[in-house]
């Protein structure tokens, strides 16, 4: 019978041809995006109180990703030296290492996080461990306040 090898070869060919199409596609995480208003990262960081606890959508370059759990992405701002963390619950969405260096749209609630000195120390220690850096407790001087987006969905453009 000669048809089986031909069919197999055709299937392999179709898969090979389809691979670049799949790789080039946008990847949707969680609920995706589109419901919240598009806001610039600079606007969020320069006027945070205006946006706290509101749904927002931002777009930008993914500059970092959680290396262990894939539970956050760092999104570059529209202005230099600015970025914002997009954090999701562990396991709800898992961002792969490949997202780094690609453009993304992310959506969620803009939140203000206030940490006591002890909590800030624990966070800094975790950050140092995650990045293989030496932890210096004196680098945390007191309570810390920062802003981030608690994510509901994202689209990464590959």
């Amino acid at each position: 019978m000669t048809s089986s090898p031909r069919i197999a070869a055709s299937l392999v060919l179709v898969l090979l041809l389809a691979t670049p199409l799949v790789l080039a596609a946008d990847k949707v995480f969680g609920e995706g995006v589109g419901k919240a208003p598009l806001v610039k990262v600079s606007e969020l960081l320069e006027h945070p109180e205006k946006w706290v606890d509101k749904p927002v959508r931002v777009e930008g370059l993914v500059t970092g990703v959680c290396k262990k759990r894939g539970c956050w992405m760092e999104i570059a701002g529209d202005k230099e030296f600015q970025s914002i963390r997009f954090k999701v619950q562990d396991g709800v969405m898992v961002f792969p290492a490949e997202v780094v260096g690609h453009r993304a749209e992310v959506e969620g609630t803009f939140v203000k996080v206030v940490l006591s000195k002890e909590q800030a120390l624990a966070r800094a220690k975790h950050h140092a461990e995650e990045h293989g850096e030496e932890f210096d407790p004196s680098s945390v001087e007191g309570p810390v306040t920062f802003y981030m987006i608690r994510g509901t969905g994202a689209v990464v453009h590959f």
Partner: peptide, 19 residues
Amino acid sequence: REVFRSTPTDVRLFYEGWT
């Protein structure tokens, strides 16, 4: 492909699949 600076001297370069 992309460049990002978190400070004037901390620079990240992004290539396809590596940084």
